[in-house]
Amino acid sequence: KITKEQQALMQVIVDAYNRHQIPQDMAKKLLQDQYSAEENFLLLTEMATNQVQVLVEFTKNIPGFLSLNHEDQIALLKGSAVEAMFLRSAQVFSRKRPSGHTDVLEERIRKSGISEEFMTPMFNFYKSIGELHMMQEEQALLTAITILTPDRPYVRDHQAVERLQEPMLDVLRKLCSLQHPHEPQYFARLLGRLTELRTLNHYHAEMLTSWRMNDHKFTPLLCEIWDVE
């Protein structure tokens, strides 16, 4: 049974998750008519910059996060940004959209200079998230759990982060067993996606390098969060 405290914790996280979304006009821009590969890249860069701002605002609302020491807050954001953004993109991508929009979005991503070897694992991940048909609560909690992963580089007070992540894992586990009574493996499948996300981190680093080679520029915020000079 989910306790009252757990219900309250989940509500705060879900409200923050719903409140901080990519601005509609930004999302619409992505679905407009065709652009060149260069303009696609600029659009996706602007989208990613928006996503980082949304990620930081969401994270500030996670109960207890702002009580962590400042350096660890920065280390957690930098360490989880790529995973949290892919998780968020996968959730947006798999959401029901007017027909035709999904392939416009997919087309735009495919024509933005991302190397093929990265494209496949990324779309496979989007598909694997889509197949779970996650509820908003599960999406919000899984994103918070990803951000509060203690073993990120440069995190010093692991225990303090674990004390925040544990209760979220506990309420997510209960939620999964309540919402998916006939699928005892569902919670494990969700956590399995976090493992998949880690591999995307590696591909993302490769992708940045290939973009850098073609002299693509990133915004200052992306350079900082992705540690790109």
Binding site: R19, Q53, V56, E57, K60, N61, L66, H70, Q73, I74, L77, K78, P220, L221, E224, I225
Partner: peptide
């Protein structure tokens, strides 16, 4: 040292 944009975003009041 460039002022950290992340720090600025973190220090801004929540829900700005």
């Amino acid at each position: 040292e460039e002022p950290s944009l992340l720090k600025k975003l973190l220090l801004a009041p929540a829900n700005s």
